[in-house]
Write a protein that binds this DNA or RNA. Structure first.
Lengths: 138, 138
DNA sequence: AGAAATTTGTCCGTATGTATC
DNA sequence: AGATACATACGGACAAATTTC
């Protein structure tokens, strides 16, 4: 049987179908995908093609595969922002104090660019980061 | 002929060999890798195995493959840290000025922990980063 | 604990489609 | 149009890890 693949290759179509099942919740996080053998039967594709499709999903971070066990759906990537963490940044020109003037080798009172980031956690200020740079060049 | 693969699988060994040639400069950036057919002959491996080895290098970002053309060596990722970059950090207690006092909701003059990092580039101060935190808790 | 069954990993050989030169 | 080279797909075989009995 000649292998025709106009448009999308088969392994991609199969990957899309499986992705759909994962994202729709038909195969929930933690659950195992059908075994390669089952997928071979269902999609009437060779094992190589099935494995290629699975590889696509693994590379996309949707599943993880264990030797001798199977491929399980990973929990959707947590937004690693727990909650209530905020950052606000603003920039302004400030005058160099004696310490900064010494470091940058400029006169006291010379202009520096200051970038200030205020980090809040649950609304309260957690830390303030101030970065000073010369105002003239980089 | 039975396929024995003690230790590392063949495609990995082949990938390592090719990686060596790339990193040693034997195959310089921009140059084309030997064709799949040539590699098949040289390593006496099947095309699938050769392609798997090439896939490893491509995924590692060492080469890029173009359909109908071949796989070429990519320019090594620039080490984004030239040289002469230095950082020195020290920590001390400072008194809150009006601005910081307002942010942290403490009295002016209250103690804050200040971590100061001085970044130098070729000896000259490039930037100064000051991070303020409350002195009491985290 | 150990043997068998299941499942994924690796490898081979081949055929054919498709893009580039 | 022809040659070359990569992409996709099939089927079979054995190895290795895991699970099951």
């Amino acid at each position: 049987m000649p292998t025709l693949h106009y448009g999308q290759p088969r392994y991609r179509l199969i990957a899309d179908e499986l992705r759909e099942r994962i994202q729709s919740g038909a195969i929930p996080p933690g659950a195992l995908l059908p075994t390669e053998s089952k997928l071979v039967i269902e999609f009437r594709a060779s094992r190589g093609t099935i494995r290629q499709a699975i590889s696509v999903l693994r590379q996309a971070g949707l599943i993880s595969t264990e030797h001798g066990r199977g491929s399980s759906v990973k929990a959707p990537a947590r937004n690693l922002e727990p909650e209530g963490v905020e950052s606000h940044t603003r920039e302004c020109l400030v005058a160099a104090d004696t310490e900064l003037a010494a470091l940058f080798a400029v006169q006291v009172g010379a202009a520096l660019i200051r970038t200030e980031t205020v980090n809040r956690r649950h609304g309260v200020v957690d830390s303030v980061v101030r970065t000073y740079r010369p105002s003239d060049a980089g």
